[in-house]
Write a protein that binds this DNA or RNA. Structure first.
Lengths: 205, 205, 205, 205
DNA sequence: AATGAATGAGTCTTCATTCAT
DNA sequence: AATGAATGAAGACTCATTCAT
């Protein structure tokens, strides 16, 4: 299928050349398709990249979705660990592409959906927390969902993309343990009274 | 003079147009300087953006540095809260610029130093943890430093850049509390035994 | 089509403007083609000029080649005259272009083949001399080939490009006679003993 | 003297960079002078190059002139050899610069005097031939002067600039012998009757 | 549906030259 | 006299996009 070849070629070129050196001509060439055909299926370059994002998101979502389903009825201890592992797997789907999408593609126009998966995951994760309300000890469920989703995404992203050492065979388990522990302690330990003289975050110019 | 105007103009254009629509001609125009003058001070576009990154990093570092100094001899409870607040302040130095640098500028060639501050902060933060070794309960100090620095960066980044609601005047305190709590519980609560049937993160293709 | 138009336009612009005022934009305009099309067929300006040189050399070579073939089996007296005439004809193929190529185009990179024809001609001419070894009286065939080829090239070049008077209808015959005479006397007259007190060419700094 | 430094720097840059990569800024820098000062002494780049040509021609002329004076009253056998040697010496004054001037500098505007020396030499040489009219056997003195001057220039130019092998210590004498022989035979041997069926040089398009 | 030649606005960059100090 | 910051026209080249076939 021409469309598939083009999306695949776009992904490969994005990885090889980076976002701003990726040209539609190179993409068409790599797809083994004429530039004319490219424009028969995609109105412009943005749409091409959007399709890549779409496809990549779909794949990530699959991984996360699977984990969420599997874990839906399990207690938090199990769920946390499983979801952390799933987050790592998700980042491993196509790390190089993920890096380019995360670090180079401008979130403008049709391309603003790069973070769609994260939003999705956040929402579904919030639902999960809600269903486990009794087991956890947090004041603001929304805030907790935001904090945990962001944290787990950042840690697994960073580990997979920038710290391969942390995920080396013999250490990966420890990493998962640590992140899981971070999550669980946050959800279950009653926080101590806030420090008295605590200052608020200052406003800057 | 001219150099400053150019760096400032570059930052403004990056914000207004994004990385790949930022042209040296627009930058020169915005700086009120001829294109020739631009090239008298900067060998190419990359160098201009590198200077912006340099300057931005300097400013961020100032903020983080100040907090670290102030907190160097204080107990973790205080330090954690202070550093979270500092991380928020740092992200508030120039959030729009920070967003472009984080999301659009390719880390290639001279531009790979975008994350220099993060590396710096991570290292200095690790030193701090080391000095407080007795107060904390973690197995691997390096790993803990990586986890906490990444977490705090991600949370404050995300809050400042994407979730202004979370930092609204009446809620900012709660956010800082939560993040601080996340950090402290991680550092002080002995983790429970890992879940028995826990699976390791799977290797992907 | 387009390629030919571009090469032709390049030649015309080279003649009209000289090498360093010849711009790819002017060339495209003169060819009645967009600048984009120009770069679809030629990777850069150098390649365009190289194509002009190639084409010009081809034409020159045709002329010289024809003469050499016609003369291959003839005695020196005939051959010399014929080749001198051919050299004149060759320089008349496109004298203005020839002047620019000879005097302005830097022999660098892909452009170093400007003198390809001369090298060719020298080699084939040497072969001819070899085949006529018995009729001629020179010590060093290589040296003789170099001397005669250089001489005839220079004289016909100079006459065609700078001394039209010398080639005026009623005088052209005399010029050919003279050059032919120069060549034949060199090839056939045993040189007298070199002057006794002759000094060698001095080395310079 | 600033002027001298500039002319010298221009020559050096011409050699190092070629004509069209030679910029006034580089020249000023190499001369250790500000670009402003450069324009205090030379109205434009052309004038600078003209000065280099001027100076180079002066030096060449010196060499040729000396030889001509020394030889003025000597018989042709001596003179020919001496002048050939002088021509070699002249080309050795600054061969690299000579090459650039000969092959890259456009003979336009003020720069058309590149060949001034050759014209000079031709004229003076003609005078010499005239003074030796009785010793030589040529029909047209002008033509003979043109032919010999062009020939000797071309051969010594080519040898010095492109065929160092021909001027290697042990072979230089042979080269001078050959060229001298070429000249003398041309001047003294009565030419045989022109070949009967000789065709004239054809007119080309 | 597919092709690929053609387009031309727009990009980065150079460089001869000016002029206020 | 000297400086060198500033200028901006102009050049080489790229690339998203169109359209006739």
């Amino acid at each position: 299928m021409t469309v598939d070849a083009l999306v695949e070629a776009t992904a490969r070129i994005l990885i090889r050349e980076g976002y701003d050196r990726a040209s539609t001509n190179k993409i068409a060439a790599m797809a083994g398709v004429s530039i004319g055909s490219l424009y028969q299926y995609f109105p412009n370059k943005e749409a091409l990249v959007a399709a890549v994002i779409e496809r990549h998101n779909q794949q990530l979502w699959q991984v996360v979705q699977n984990a969420l389903v599997k874990v839906a009825a399990r207690p938090i201890e199990i769920a946390a660990r499983e979801l952390v592992a799933a987050a790592i797997d998700a980042h491993r789907v196509d790390p190089k592409l993920h890096r380019v999408l995360a670090e180079e593609v401008p979130r403008a126009g049709r391309l603003e959906n790069i973070e769609a998966v994260e939003r999705n995951a956040r929402a579904v994760f919030r639902s999960y927390l809600e269903s486990r309300r009794s087991e956890i000890d947090v004041a603001d469920l929304d805030l907790a969902a935001f904090i945990l989703a962001t944290t787990v995404e950042a840690l697994t992203h960073s580990a997979v993309l920038h710290r391969p050492d942390v995920l080396a065979d013999e250490k990966a388990g420890a990493f998962v343990n640590e992140v899981t522990g971070l999550v669980l302690r946050y959800l279950r330990t009653p926080s101590k009274a806030p420090v008295k003289r605590a200052r608020q975050a200052r406003r800057s110019g």
